[in-house]
Amino acid sequence: MRRSIQFRLNGEAVSAQVAPHETLVEVLQDAFGLFGARESCGQGLCGCCTVVVNGRAVSGCLYLASFAEGGEVSTIEAGSRLDAVQEAFIECGSLQCGFCTPGFILMTRQLLEEHPEPDDDTIRHYLSGNLCRCAAYPQIIEAVKLAARKMRQT
């Protein structure tokens, strides 16, 4: 019962054969070889599978791939240069194993779009759905604030 769906992936028009039950992370990995969004909890809690669909972050593990039809999908692989958020995460040492990092970066971009000058509470609250098993939380919060400063300067 596979069918073809069309959408834009990181700025390019693409199509994929998807089964009705397949999630967006499964299709990104199996059909496009993109592994930046990866399934960890599988329950919407940890954010490792974060994908941006039509400008809004979703948990790719709970999102039917079919729902992306006709939409604009963007992953951590988008773009060829590091942005301010990625630079800040590197400069602040905000990762150890890096498994959670794509999700944190995509969520931080959304956070800063909504709150260009976030305080600690806002950051913690917005990122409460992202878990880091290496517990790099203090450095992550630093990185969000550094990224905010970088973005204000440019």
């Binding site: 919407g44 809690l45 974060t50 969520m107 917005y126 759905g129």
Partner: peptide
């Protein structure tokens, strides 16, 4: 829940 769940 969290922002991603509320988005969907």
């Amino acid at each position: 829940a969290n922002v991603r769940v509320r988005n969907v």
